[in-house]
Simulated assay, not measured.
Amino acid sequence: MLDNLVLFLAIIEREGLSAAGRELGLSPATVSERLAALEAYYGATLMTRTTRSLSLTEEGRVLAEGAQRLLAEADELESRIRWGTQKISGPVRLTAPVDLGQNRVVPIIDRFIEAHPDVTVDITLTDSFVDLVGQGLDFAVRYGPSADSTLKTRLIGENRRLICASPDYLARNGTPMHPDDLMQHDCILMRFAQNADRIWSFQVDGKTHDVVVRGRRTANNGHLLKRWALEGRGLCKKSVWDVQADLDEGRLVEVLAPFSSRRTVLQIVYPPSRVQPRRVSALIDAIATQLTIQDSVA
Rank of each mutant, 00 (worst) to 15 (best):
I12Q: 01
L17H: 01
A19Y: 06
A20H: 03
G21P: 03
G21Q: 01
R22I: 05
E23S: 09
L24R: 01
S27Q: 05
E33K: 13
L35D: 09
A40F: 09
Y42E: 09
T45Q: 14
M47L: 15
M47N: 01
M47G: 06
T51F: 10
L63C: 02
A67W: 00
R80Q: 11
R82E: 09
I88K: 07
G90Y: 01
V92M: 07
V92H: 02
R93S: 07
L94Y: 00
T95L: 02
L100R: 04
R104Q: 14
I108W: 02
F112V: 02
H116C: 04
P117F: 01
T120W: 08
T124S: 14
T126P: 03
D127L: 03
F129E: 14
V133S: 13
V133R: 14
G136S: 01
D138Q: 07
D138N: 14
F139L: 06
F139A: 08
F139C: 06
R142C: 11
R142I: 12
S146K: 11
S146I: 10
D148F: 11
D148L: 13
S149N: 14
K152P: 07
K152S: 14
L155A: 11
I156T: 08
G157R: 07
E158H: 15
N159A: 11
R161A: 13
A171V: 09
P176H: 03
D186R: 05
D186A: 09
C187P: 00
I188E: 00
R191T: 04
Q194F: 09
N195R: 15
A196E: 04
I199Y: 03
Q203Y: 12
V204S: 00
D205G: 06
K207Q: 13
H209F: 06
V213T: 05
R214H: 15
R216Q: 12
T218I: 08
N220G: 15
N221A: 06
H223D: 12
L224G: 10
K226H: 11
A229H: 02
L230K: 03
L230M: 07
E231P: 08
G232K: 01
R233D: 12
L235I: 10
K238F: 12
V240G: 13
D242P: 04
Q244A: 14
A245R: 12
D246R: 09
L247D: 02
E249P: 10
E249L: 15
R251Y: 10
L252C: 01
E254N: 06
E254H: 03
E254A: 09
V255E: 02
R262A: 14
R262M: 10
V265H: 06
Q267P: 06
I268Y: 00
V269M: 07
V269I: 10
P272Q: 09
R278S: 09
A282Y: 01
A282L: 00
L283E: 04
D285H: 00
T289G: 11
